[in-house]
Design a binder for these strands. Structure first.
Lengths: 244, 244
DNA sequence: AAAACAATAAAAACCGATATATTTAACTTT
DNA sequence: AAAGTTAAATATATCGGTTTTTATTGTTTT
């Protein structure tokens, strides 16, 4: 199965500094990939607001590219559920709704419960270590860049995703991983749109560690339950913002 | 009012009579959609063989369109796991493998088990009737067009998908439905590629009816078990062809 | 005034040509 | 001969303009 078009940084590259610099300098990614990544980010961040019309000509100017990369990127975003398309009358940013979020949460729980279960069943010692290290790294990064008011920390966002994806990485199904990935990104969008007041007062790091512990003790049911609780708690804040 | 004489009519537009009126009313499909549907079919049927390179220029000639619709269709097929893309070096048909099929089957069982369960929990009387009618219609259509040797029956294929999608239709998650749909199409591809010898000797209609009965009696566990058995049995034939 | 129609404006879809990158082949150099 | 280098051929990616379709506006008719 193919990875995300924008994802060119598998962890095993980190040690090969030579290759890294070559890739970085050549920067041989296509316009399409660049526009895709940027537009995705713009939708997730809310800069491109839900439900607005995406006019090719405007996007062309905005991203300084021709029509082809724009249209291709939009096609890809369509399959990621960030953009909707109607034949002959263009594209628009997917809408968000309270019901949509409910569905997202529900589906995420179903899929990740299974994925985590299977991952625990199949994962070996190496996987356990990856989980431990992902949890540790996440714990060292502050959730917000400011202590007083919430300012999203990009580094935390990356580490958080890494942790959750590592948990389920050994489920034995690239398909399922891809689905979970797509839903995870949808969830980030809702979190971002909900804004700063969704900043949790509770100890999220503690929740992550509990999940980690359950995983290491190979307790499938407990781990799955903790994970689902974790998602439900986080969602509570997002939802309270959304209904306003 | 400059009416040009340069009128290149695509001949494939004139062959429909019943559908023509429906299409004419509102549904004017784009080139992209048409090419997308056709290429998808060509990959599923095996006319476009697994792993072959998809050269834009060849496809252009083959489907009689410009580059834009081709590239857009390919982008869409990428998200359906039928086509793979590598930046700056084009597209190719996704490969198939025994392991890939195992993964597919596994994932399908996980997702459909959950979807069916939820559907039984949420579905109302109207849904039950839809299931009954889908099963009935399927039962009236022969699996093969010939009685002696297997000739795929397009009508059966449609009714079969309809039955299985109806079963899970009330799961309460469009996301999950979409995932199941994508996996179902992947499965059709494997079935087609496996060829005629995967023609089952067993009574498939009976299996469908058993699932139907379990659904109507709202027996989640039984229904899910029967569904998974059904998939496993069908897969046995496909797999026996695949290893050759 | 509401509906039907026509003319205009706007936007999407599409094409063909050009620019950019990759692969292949031929030709050195070690 | 293997490895490296360069040049030609091939294919991808991209652009900007043209055609087709949809949306808007204004006018006529009922």
């Amino acid at each position: 199965m193919q990875d995300d078009a924008s994802n060119h940084n598998p962890p095993e590259l980190e040690d090969k500094s030579v290759l890294a610099s070559i890739c970085a300098s050549n920067n041989t990614t296509s316009m399409t990939s660049r526009v895709y990544a940027q537009m995705k980010q713009d939708i997730i961040s809310g800069r491109l607001e839900p439900n607005i019309k995406l006019k090719i000509e405007s996007l062309r100017k905005e991203y300084n590219v021709g029509t082809s990369p724009i249209r291709e990127a939009l096609s890809l975003l369509t399959s990621d559920y960030f953009v909707e398309r109607i034949d002959q009358r263009g594209f628009r940013v997917s809408n968000v709704s309270s019901d949509g979020f409910d569905e997202l949460l529900r589906t995420r729980c179903w899929l990740e419960e299974r994925a985590l279960s299977e991952s625990i069943a199949r994962g070996n010692g190496q996987w356990e270590e990856k989980v431990v290290i992902a949890n540790y790294r996440l714990s060292r990064i502050p959730r917000s860049e400011s202590k007083n008011h919430f300012v999203a920390n990009e580094q935390w966002e990356i580490a958080h995703k890494k942790f959750h994806m590592t948990l389920i990485s050994e489920c034995g199904s690239p398909f399922l991983l891809k689905f979970c990935d797509q839903l995870y990104e949808q969830n980030i969008r809702y979190r971002q749109l909900a804004g700063s007041s969704a900043y949790p007062q509770r100890d999220v790091a503690e929740e992550h560690s509990s999940i980690c512990d359950a995983v290491l003790s190979r307790n499938k049911d407990l781990a799955a339950r903790l994970l689902i609780d974790h998602y439900n708690k986080t969602s509570y804040f997002v939802k309270s913002e959304l209904v306003k």
